Amino acid sequence: MDKFTEEINACLKVLEEGGLILYPTDTVWGIGCDATNQEAVRKVYALKNRDDSKALICLVANDAMLERHIDKVPELAYDIMDLSTKPTTIIYDRPKSVAKNLIAEDNTLAIRVASDKFCKYLINKFRKPIVSTSANVSDEPSPKGFHEISESILKGVDYVVNLHPENPNAVPSAIIKLGNDGTVKVIRA
């Protein structure tokens, strides 16, 4: 079995058991868990020492998975995803079939369709969205590389992926909020 498949299988086992993984994403290193498992999501908030009113980002493998977890995806979202030159997270109204503690107080959820091979493959095999939040304790800077991830994060996850990110100079994604009423707000460019 090749290294890539070994890493995918190890992650799947941890995700299925409600554990936390530390993994390279299409942006920065992320802490991940099953986005439909409320207890797993709670562990992420605890590890990051983060108030659970601060929403987390969720990754899906493709448009079809996105459509299963959002009440109505605005047409504009597809244009933004097609035209974006960097990973872009979109905040949608009325998410569904995800952990309740993942949904923001205003009934929205930030979702990004993963663009890197590892994340797409992992999420496709898992068949559910996974949480993706930067691998840092709240109020500390996001690590720019694996070497900047704190000991508390490394010790606090159940599995650390042993692969290099596709894009080693990654930066956090852009974040755009799309309201079902047609409003568009850039949260992070």
Rank of each mutant, 00 (worst) to 15 (best):
D63F: 08
D63C: 08
D63R: 13
M65Y: 10
M65P: 03
M65L: 11
M65D: 06
M65A: 08
L66T: 03
E67P: 00
E67C: 08
E67Q: 11
E67N: 07
E67H: 05
E67M: 06
E67Y: 02
R68V: 02
R68G: 01
H69T: 03
H69V: 09
I70A: 11
I70V: 15
D71C: 13
D71H: 11
D71Q: 13
K72F: 14
V73A: 04
P74A: 10
P74L: 10
P74Y: 07
P74V: 09
E75M: 11
E75N: 12
E75G: 10
L76S: 05
L76Q: 11
L76Y: 12
Y78G: 07
I80H: 08
I80L: 14
I80G: 04
M81P: 01
D82V: 00
D82R: 15
L83Q: 15
L83M: 14
L83S: 12
L83N: 13
L83G: 04
S84P: 04
S84M: 11
S84T: 15
T85H: 07
T85G: 12
T85M: 09
K86W: 00
K86V: 09
K86R: 12
K86F: 00
P87T: 00
P87G: 01
P87D: 01
T88I: 01
T88H: 04
T88G: 06
Y92F: 15
Y92V: 06
Y92P: 09
Y92L: 12
R94T: 03
R94Y: 14
R94F: 13
P95C: 08
S97G: 12
S97Y: 13
S97F: 12
A99F: 03
A99D: 13
K100M: 11
N101H: 06
N101Y: 07
N101Q: 04
N101V: 12
L102K: 00
L102H: 05
L102W: 00
I103Q: 04
E105Q: 10
E105P: 00
E105Y: 12
D106M: 01
N107P: 04
T108L: 03
L109N: 04
L109Y: 06
A110L: 03
A110S: 14
I111A: 12
I111T: 07
R112L: 01
R112F: 08
V113F: 01
V113T: 11
A114Q: 05
A114N: 06
A114H: 02
S115P: 00
S115Y: 00
D116S: 10
D116I: 09
D116T: 15
K117R: 13
C119V: 12
K120P: 01
K120N: 00
K120R: 15
Y121L: 10
Y121K: 14
L122W: 09
L122I: 10
L122M: 08
L122Q: 05
I123V: 08
I123H: 06
N124D: 15
K125Q: 13
F126G: 09
F126W: 03
F126P: 07
F126V: 11
R127Y: 08
K128H: 15
P129T: 06
P129V: 05
I130K: 02
V131M: 07
V131L: 07
S132H: 06
T133Q: 07
T133G: 12
T133L: 14
S134Y: 12
S134I: 05
A135R: 09
A135E: 10
N136K: 01
V137L: 15
V137R: 10
S138L: 04
S138M: 06
S138H: 14
S138W: 13
D139I: 00
E140Y: 13
E140C: 09
E140N: 13
E140A: 10
